[in-house]
Nucleic acid binder design. Structure first.
Lengths: 195, 195, 195, 195
DNA sequence: GATGAATGAGTCTTCATTCAT
DNA sequence: CATGAATGAAGACTCATTCAT
């Protein structure tokens, strides 16, 4: 399995840096190879082509991102806590890794439609996690029962995504993580059973 | 003023079509010229360069989009009605113009970071409108008084934007406008003074 | 019609020279452009791709080659004279244009099978001319009546082609045209002592 | 001597197959190694470089080809019989080995000029055999005495070669061997009606 | 104002060959 | 002897922009 070889990860890490520093379209394969400390041709022993590098970057990084969140909420006791944890960890992880934030929020969005569809595939498990929280909240009777799950999921994801993008575009000048409370409150109020 | 000359608009309309049909990266200046019925060189009598065309497309189309919404909410009596009207018109306008929806939600997002910052400038008046509605709601005591306006605005815009993007990506197979009620309810519940 | 524009012919002539001097595989488009005195991109206004240049070189040059021979034999009175004229002109034309001889006998043979099939199409009219001479000779009762035309044509063309190729490979150190008589005699008379 | 080791021949046989199946330019060293069941690097223990493989293929195969013909004509009693045997065996051997026919008639011709000169060296013994037959025929007074041997040899070889190439290009749809009689007759008798 | 022929910079990918094991 | 992972040079083609007419 190529993914376990050290050069595979070297190239992935180099790609994140090069894309973050130069922008999506100025990211030449030669520059990625150079930063990874391998020859140009070596890239093609591990990746089919340039697009494959970009998809793999997203798969690897978002895969870990999602897995951590999945793990983080697994020991929470109810949908409300899980939702807060998800928001908090979403912001916290991207806060910690500036390069990753730039790449996922700005640069990889510049990819063509084909690549974006692949990216959507990678995101699917995250959307499923959100769906599950909504369903659990409904079962626990803390969220309203007549929610359009698909729509609510889009609203939650859209909210988080837009907030992170704004933060990245404003060059990360303020603290993203501390927004989690307000965002959680806003979303919860929208979802909750009125009392 | 060049904007009043017929060829200016011909080129803008041609650009929207070409981008919608071929995608952002396959949109060559020569193809836009051809569809507009002018020579390649003529483009450069009306626009500084290719980027200028794309920005102008966004300015013209989003300018009208925003203006219509501004006008639409001007005769509403309170923040709640205004918010619903904004959501409804946001969805309604993009529903009516498929080309525009594809271009603004998918294709222009593929532009580089510099262009996206310019696009953000164009969107600013729209964000101000949202801000004003939130402030008015607070004054009218129908929205909570401790809202972080900047954050709430991002959440509202993010929500609307994500919902439209999902609708475009699913090839506009369902009715977008009828989602307005649920979206309005979700947002309102989040914003409202608890009773 | 692009073929009548001066740059089309400039590029064709440049291509013949570059291929003759550098060999088929070392013939870069950039070098052809340089020798033709045009920009690299200009090549692609007149030719679809590199292969198209090579095919066109062959079409143009062999087209003229064949046409001259067709014209040259048109006023001859019998098959024997026509055959001699064909051999003589075949040798004479390639003798005069060393570059062309190298390109047609050595370099273009290095092309891939697809290109070679196209080259065969171009050669077809020449083979038809040979066929016609054989048929005429049979009608005139100076050639045998039981000839397998397809086979005889291959033998005649193979003979001429091999002789020219040998002459080119020996760096054109001897006079090709003066071989015409012997070749003509061999073809008409064969090896045997007449009885 | 490396030639006697089994891997040498494995590689030669693999090369013939790979070239016949994929064409000259698509014949990568890695593919030949794979088909031969050895590692890429092993190739270079037996051959200096890729060109050396190709030359060796030609040497080995054409060496056998020529040797068999030399042996086949050795017990014939006169030049005429020898010439017929040469033609018949030339056609017969290539008829039997489709791969070899494709490789020698089409694919190896795509090699560069330098390689073709080496190939000509390999063919030299065959040309000598033809020369000897012509000389013997002259001595035996069955061929004309005033023949230009070099030229006649080119004509004979060119004839045979062109006929085989045509047969290969027409995908070997007809019987090549049965052409031998006509070809022999043409070469000995020429086109003319005997007087 | 309008044209469109001409320009030329910029980059991904292949594959023969090497060499540490 | 044998391996196969790693190397790195080399070139066709596109397309935004210009400028002589």
């Amino acid at each position: 399995m190529k993914k376990n070889k050290p050069k595979y990860n070297q190239i992935i890490e180099a790609a994140v840096q090069v894309i973050a520093e130069n922008g999506y379209h100025a990211s030449q394969v030669a520059r990625i190879a150079q930063k990874a400390g391998v020859a140009d041709g070596t890239i093609y022993l591990y990746f089919k082509n340039k697009e494959d590098i970009l998809i793999s970057v997203f798969e690897e990084k978002m895969g870990q991102f999602i897995e951590k969140i999945a793990h983080g909420i697994s020991d929470k006791n109810n949908a409300d806590e899980k939702l807060f944890t998800l928001i908090d960890m979403h912001f916290r992880q991207l806060s910690k890794d500036h390069y990753l934030a730039i790449v996922t929020q700005l640069e990889l969005r510049q990819s063509n439609t084909k690549l974006r569809l692949k990216i959507n595939q990678v995101l699917k498990p995250y959307l499923v996690i959100i769906d599950d929280i909504i369903k659990e909240g409904t079962r626990e009777n803390i969220f309203r029962s007549n929610l359009n799950i698909q729509l609510v999921r889009q609203m939650i994801f859209g909210t988080l995504d837009e907030i992170v993008t704004n933060w990245v575009m404003k060059e990360q000048k303020y603290d993203l993580v501390q927004q989690a409370t307000d965002v959680h409150e806003f979303i919860t109020a929208g979802l909750s059973v009125k009392k």
